[in-house]
Design a protein around this nucleic acid. Structure first.
Lengths: 335, 335
DNA sequence: ATGAATAATGCAATCGTTTGCATAATAATA
DNA sequence: TATTATTATGCAAACGATTGCATTATTCAT
């Protein structure tokens, strides 16, 4: 048998479809008796309102789009999970888009969202063309997470302050010869901010030395690259501490050093970024910076909903947390 | 200005809406000239077809629902990513639902999918009430992934065969005292299958000893549990090899043994399951079983689409791959 | 050139809701 | 009781697309 519609419910309950609609949405005055009848009929028929029809009529979909680089990344998947949670409990539905690498797949993805008439979009992380976001934000409510785009409300982490603090406490812990080893960046605010924070700290110390290595191929699982890098470059330099821009690099360094017979943290201290699950169980466990994905997601979502409901919104910044573990011995009280 | 509709396009192009529709869907005969005009008008207006309207009219949404325990799990997030990929390139949209723990959130999630009129659903992994799936499968096309439900097409891994093979090759590599350390199971086919495979192999050997420990609290990141377990129980037993039912347990064992001064793999060999990213970089790296999430997702999706299009479908099984690494020294040629 | 077949297009109904307006029923007030 | 507010309901028109049927324009064959 066909799926029950509001008409069927109306017929069974002996009222008009308007009444059924009103009972079910429950925001107008309805006599208790009819409400009862309607609810009974709906229940009996197993009536499920048709979202498409409602969406068409009301010109809003109660759905949002979420664009992120790849949903299988540890951080992003946590965001996905959180957003799903908040969205569902607010009666919203979520469409995810992986921006991937190329602009064309991005545009295509955004088009899917547009076609579906999402009420708003959240863009999380880099890798998505800024001008595209700008463009979209004129048509529909947009919030960016972990990234800033001009004239678009954003939710970001305080990377710069955190890395400055981290560097300072390493200095206070006695380290003097620093190596900053990070992914190269162009306009990725969070990466450049991390490096900026490093410099903020270093520039205050005249008895500290700092070298920087920025590499494109460091990210992802290309740890062998780190290994080479370690053998070729670091051995000449021999820093006392290596500050990296993500945990995978840090783990790569640790792994490489292990194979070269260099002891971590005894000979070289290493810090990461992201607090990946594996970092806690690594040997040695990785001193790193934790970013609260759930918090980011929550604020992004709430901000977006406020925008959709035409409430005033503003950007926000979330504090990161430095997690001290074995790979870098940060002295008590230096944070 | 309002978003352009098919009417606007029709007016600009000087044709009827029917014609516009036909041009854009491109499956009926249309003169080249009008097609040209229509396409030009659509382009000029930035026309984006309204999915809700189409969905309403055609009674299909070109969308599917995917229900999984949690989208942030490493394996599941890979599935999510893959499904997104295949779905989008087939013109489908995806709604994810986290089944979480309780039945109520499951039912709620499924309701969301029903309301949205998804054309089909994929249920991946355990934790979702089997009878609920049965129920749903009467209303809409359903495929299960990494799990079997009566009368529902499924895509599963050959857990039993794989673990049997793994056990056999460990035996052939010289191990005799086995410990199977896994999550306890009730109806989770994959877990019970793994254990069954272990027994399949062991039962053939009269000179091998096997102990089994099944624990509820082993899964997830409760590695301290493993640690306790290791100290209290295993030390009395002292197996030569430990076969675990997932990588986290294996890593926990490795980590615990390290702290107890037991050398792995020299004193005890350990195998995991899942081939998590971290397992490759662990020290020692973890011998494990890889399950191809992308393959699973692809077959699930294709099967579902076949069902939706009323083509005949059948269940399939995917071979797992044993990945030999440092934590368990499987001899060449024993596989 | 004339009728038959085919190709192009338009008309209008339809999908399932919601909602402004009108009306009927009820309650409050004078 | 007559009159006015208030509360409950129904009617019917949207929302934007698709599609069966009817119609017109075109092509083809004889």
């Amino acid at each position: 048998m066909r799926k029950a519609t509001i008409k069927d419910v109306a017929k069974i309950a002996g009222v008009s479809t308007s009444t059924v609609s009103r009972v079910l949405s429950g925001n107008t005055s309805i006599s208790i008796a009819t409400a009862e009848k309607v609810r009974y009929a709906a229940e009996k028929l197993g009536y499920i309102p048709n979202t498409a029809a409602r969406c068409l009529r009301c010109d809003k979909s109660k759905s949002i789009g979420v664009v992120l680089p790849d949903i299988s990344g540890e951080f992003y998947s946590l965001c996905a999970s959180s957003i799903l949670k908040y969205a569902h409990s607010a009666g919203y539905t979520v469409l995810f888009i992986e921006s991937g690498n190329d602009l064309s797949s991005e545009t295509e993805g955004v088009n899917i969202l547009l076609q579906h008439g999402v009420d708003g979009m959240i863009f999380i992380g880099g890798g998505i063309d800024a001008s595209l976001i700008q463009e979209i934000s004129k048509e529909v409510s947009v919030v960016t997470g972990d990234r800033k785009v001009k004239n678009v409300p954003s939710v970001t982490f305080n990377n710069r302050v955190t890395v400055k603090k981290l560097t300072q406490s390493l200095y206070k812990s006695g380290f003097r010869k620093f190596l900053y080893l990070g992914e190269s960046f162009n306009s990725f605010d969070n990466l450049s901010d991390r490096y900026a924070g490093f410099n903020d700290a270093i520039n205050n110390y005249h008895d500290a030395t700092a070298i920087t290595i920025l590499e494109d191929s460091l990210h992802g699982d290309k740890l062998s690259v780190s290994f080479e890098l370690f053998e070729n470059k670091i051995s000449e330099i021999m820093p006392e501490v290596i500050i990296t821009s993500n945990d995978l690099i840090a783990q790569g360094i640790i792994s490489a050093s292990y194979k070269c017979g260099i002891k971590i943290p005894e000979q070289i201290a290493v810090t990461g970024f992201d607090d990946m699950t594996s970092s806690a169980y690594y040997t040695p466990s990785v001193t790193t910076v934790r970013q609260d994905a759930d918090k980011l997601s929550k604020i992004c979502f709430n901000t977006l909903i406020d925008m959709i409901e035409n409430k005033p919104v503003s950007s926000s910044e979330i504090n990161q947390e430095i997690i001290i573990r074995e790979s870098a011995d940060i002295k008590e009280g230096t944070l």
